[in-house]
Design a protein around this nucleic acid. Structure first.
Lengths: 111, 111
DNA sequence: CGCATAGTTTGATGGTTGTCAAACCATGCG
DNA sequence: CGCATGGTTTGACAACCATCAAACTATGCG
């Protein structure tokens, strides 16, 4: 059960967080993490129908931006949202984005 | 006093809004618009020390993403935030981002 | 009409990004 | 140790982006 390097929350920049969330796949990943709790890299790749290296790339982006936390357990890497820390750093931000994303999805994709 | 074409708010996509705000200059522009009200393209270029064509490019991005409204009056084009419409479309989002941006700026740039 | 002013458009350039595939690395199981 | 499995890294490619400069457009003033 190892931990991986993560940026300290005070070093997390708002523009980096917003950039990470501006990709539809990464936004969907964050919504799923918020809804279903933690998941693994492989499961995400399957669920979203993308190559595993692409999933790895997005998860790295999310980790480096400060949004997700990665915990290694055996061969698996579990990703989770750094929800409390983010709420502390940017109060209300994650909630607003999550509810906007959920509403956006429910309303149907505006092609 | 002419109006320019703007996207309808129901066509505004969350990821586009986040992408528009993920550029430090555009985020700063939005903060200024929220604080000081409307401004012109040329003033922004001066204030931020960027070329006027760069300012024009960023303002176009902000307009197309649905964040700002452009009103032409004579030779000047006044930009303003589509605050109420955005609040209606994505409740709480703009406020959370603005307060995060202001807090981030006050805390000093984390190089 | 002619000119100055405010913005936009069009290159051109250097840098970043998302994607897949293939090679690679690390971990645990037998 | 050898192998399968879960992820990462690298390479390649096409698309996109921020920036400046220069040419262009549009507007109002005299």
């Amino acid at each position: 059960m190892r931990l991986l390097p993560h940026p300290a929350m005070e070093d997390v920049e708002l523009t980096e967080v917003l950039r990470a969330l501006s990709d539809p796949i990464r936004l969907e990943v964050v919504v799923r993490l918020a809804t279903d709790g933690e998941t693994t890299c492989g499961k995400l790749g399957e669920d979203l129908g993308i190559h595993k290296s692409t999933a790895s790339h997005h998860l790295r982006t999310l980790r480096e931006s400060g949004l997700v936390f990665t915990k290694q357990d055996g061969r698996l890497k579990y990703m989770s949202l750094r929800r409390d820390e983010l709420d502390d750093r940017f109060p209300g931000l994650l909630d607003a984005i999550l509810s906007a994303a959920r509403q956006d999805t429910r309303a149907g994709a505006h092609a």
